[in-house]
Amino acid sequence: VDNKFNKEQQNAFYEILHLPNLNEEQRNAFIQSLKDDPSQSANLLAEAKKLNDAQA
């Protein structure tokens, strides 16, 4: 993981990586967004979790 991520951002990265119901395309999009703007990690994680739950 890129060293410019802080602890919260790293946690978001790993959580998104391991959400079971996202397809690869969705997962990659969230990860790319996280890399583009790490400050949005909490929002991105919340969105990813919502999508993950919706696809459960």
Rank of each mutant, 00 (worst) to 15 (best):
1 V>K: 07
1 V>M: 10
1 V>S: 11
2 D>I: 04
2 D>G: 05
2 D>S: 04
3 N>D: 15
3 N>S: 05
3 N>L: 01
3 N>A: 04
3 N>I: 04
3 N>F: 01
4 K>I: 15
4 K>G: 14
4 K>Y: 10
4 K>W: 14
4 K>L: 08
4 K>A: 12
5 F>K: 04
5 F>R: 06
5 F>T: 07
5 F>G: 07
5 F>Y: 06
5 F>S: 04
6 N>M: 02
6 N>F: 02
6 N>C: 06
7 K>T: 11
7 K>E: 08
8 E>F: 04
8 E>Q: 03
8 E>L: 02
8 E>W: 04
8 E>P: 02
9 Q>H: 03
9 Q>G: 02
9 Q>D: 04
9 Q>N: 02
10 Q>H: 03
10 Q>W: 14
10 Q>L: 09
10 Q>K: 08
11 N>A: 14
11 N>M: 15
11 N>K: 12
12 A>N: 04
12 A>S: 05
12 A>Y: 03
12 A>M: 03
12 A>H: 07
12 A>D: 04
13 F>Q: 06
13 F>P: 01
13 F>D: 01
13 F>K: 06
13 F>M: 14
13 F>I: 06
14 Y>L: 09
14 Y>K: 07
14 Y>E: 08
15 E>P: 01
15 E>A: 15
16 I>Q: 00
16 I>C: 01
16 I>G: 01
16 I>E: 00
16 I>T: 01
16 I>Y: 00
16 I>A: 01
17 L>Y: 15
17 L>G: 05
17 L>I: 06
17 L>P: 01
18 H>D: 06
18 H>M: 05
18 H>I: 10
18 H>F: 06
19 L>C: 05
19 L>W: 01
19 L>G: 00
19 L>T: 01
19 L>I: 02
19 L>K: 01
20 P>H: 08
20 P>W: 07
20 P>T: 11
20 P>C: 10
20 P>K: 07
20 P>R: 13
20 P>G: 10
20 P>V: 04
21 N>D: 08
21 N>E: 06
21 N>H: 05
21 N>A: 12
21 N>F: 11
21 N>S: 09
21 N>G: 06
21 N>P: 00
22 L>D: 00
22 L>P: 00
22 L>E: 00
22 L>M: 04
22 L>F: 02
22 L>S: 00
23 N>F: 13
23 N>D: 06
23 N>Q: 11
23 N>A: 03
23 N>C: 12
23 N>L: 13
23 N>S: 03
24 E>Y: 11
24 E>T: 04
24 E>R: 05
24 E>P: 07
25 E>V: 08
25 E>N: 14
25 E>D: 11
25 E>M: 13
26 Q>C: 07
26 Q>A: 04
26 Q>M: 06
26 Q>G: 01
26 Q>H: 04
26 Q>F: 04
27 R>F: 03
27 R>T: 04
27 R>S: 02
27 R>M: 05
27 R>N: 01
27 R>D: 00
27 R>C: 04
28 N>G: 06
28 N>H: 08
28 N>I: 13
29 A>C: 13
29 A>V: 13
29 A>L: 05
29 A>D: 05
29 A>M: 12
30 F>E: 00
30 F>T: 01
30 F>D: 00
31 I>Y: 09
31 I>D: 00
32 Q>I: 14
32 Q>G: 10
32 Q>S: 08
32 Q>V: 10
32 Q>D: 05
32 Q>F: 15
33 S>M: 10
33 S>Y: 03
33 S>T: 13
33 S>P: 02
33 S>N: 08
34 L>G: 01
34 L>A: 07
34 L>V: 09
35 K>D: 04
35 K>I: 05
35 K>N: 10
35 K>Y: 04
35 K>T: 05
35 K>P: 01
35 K>S: 06
36 D>T: 13
36 D>P: 01
36 D>L: 15
37 D>P: 00
37 D>G: 08
37 D>Q: 09
37 D>S: 05
37 D>T: 10
38 P>H: 06
38 P>G: 06
38 P>W: 03
38 P>Q: 04
39 S>G: 11
39 S>K: 09
39 S>C: 08
39 S>Y: 12
39 S>Q: 05
40 Q>H: 10
40 Q>K: 12
40 Q>G: 06
40 Q>E: 09
40 Q>Y: 10
41 S>A: 09
41 S>M: 09
41 S>T: 09
41 S>V: 11
42 A>D: 07
42 A>N: 10
42 A>S: 07
42 A>L: 14
43 N>W: 15
43 N>C: 09
43 N>P: 03
43 N>D: 07
43 N>T: 09
44 L>T: 08
44 L>S: 03
44 L>G: 01
44 L>C: 07
44 L>Y: 11
44 L>E: 01
44 L>F: 11
44 L>R: 06
45 L>E: 03
45 L>T: 07
45 L>Y: 12
45 L>R: 11
45 L>D: 00
45 L>Q: 04
46 A>F: 14
46 A>H: 12
46 A>I: 08
46 A>W: 14
46 A>M: 13
46 A>L: 13
46 A>V: 12
46 A>N: 10
47 E>T: 13
47 E>L: 15
47 E>F: 15
47 E>M: 14
47 E>D: 02
47 E>C: 15
47 E>N: 10
47 E>H: 06
48 A>T: 01
48 A>L: 01
49 K>F: 14
49 K>M: 12
49 K>H: 03
50 K>P: 00
50 K>M: 12
50 K>G: 10
50 K>Y: 12
50 K>S: 11
51 L>C: 08
51 L>I: 12
51 L>G: 01
52 N>I: 02
52 N>A: 06
52 N>W: 01
53 D>K: 15
53 D>E: 12
53 D>P: 01
53 D>W: 13
54 A>L: 12
54 A>C: 12
54 A>R: 12
55 Q>K: 05
55 Q>I: 13
55 Q>P: 09
55 Q>L: 14
55 Q>A: 11
55 Q>E: 11
56 A>N: 13
56 A>V: 09
56 A>Q: 12
56 A>W: 11
